[in-house]
């Protein structure tokens, strides 16, 4: 399955959320579920500042801190209210837990494919505010990169 197929299936809906005062949007196809914030369990090989795992419906879901994926300062952020379960595929892909400050809601909109290693595919105004539309596949890949790098560094 290609990225374009995902985009074509769920092109018409975007999930709006806020992190560090900035607005972000994810296409519905890349979001499995909006979950409650659960307690973060530490992984011995992964530094706490990078992230940990949470118990999500019986499965271990890796969760990265907001500053590890987005261009924000972790110390200045409020406590997250929700945890987005992001996947690079609509079914059976790699999953990632992303804590967010606030869920704004669903809006109609088209997804976009990121270029290069960028996680942000596009910046456009939605409901009168500049919103960074994220690419789920690039986001998950980036997370994998961060985790691997952290693991390598810790080793």
């Amino acid at each position: 399955m290609s990225a374009s197929s995902v985009a074509s299936t769920c092109a018409e809906r975007l999930l709006l959320f806020e992190v560090g005062g900035s607005r972000y949007a994810l296409p519905i196809a890349g979001v499995i579920e909006v979950a409650e914030v659960a307690r973060l369990a530490c992984i011995p090989s992964l530094p706490v500042r990078v992230g940990g795992v949470v118990n999500h419906r019986g499965d271990a879901l890796p969760v990265l801190r907001r500053s590890a994926l987005l261009d924000v300062d972790e110390a200045a952020l409020p406590e997250p209210t929700h945890l987005l379960v992001v996947s690079d595929r609509p079914t059976g892909g790699a999953r990632l837990g992303l804590p967010v400050d606030r869920i704004v809601g669903l809006v109609d909109g088209t997804a976009a494919v990121a270029r290069g290693a960028q996680t942000v595919a596009e910046r456009r105004p939605i409901d009168g505010r500049v919103t960074s539309v994220l690419d789920p596949q690039r986001l998950v890949a980036r997370a994998q990169e961060v985790i691997e790098r952290s693991l390598v560094r810790s080793e």
Binding site: C10, E12, I28, V34, E36
Partner: peptide, 15 residues
């Protein structure tokens, strides 16, 4: 609210 959000997501997935 969360349930309705997830329901909306599921509905969007269902096409």
């Amino acid at each position: 609210n969360l349930l309705s959000l997830n329901a909306s997501i599921e509905a969007a997935r269902a096409g």
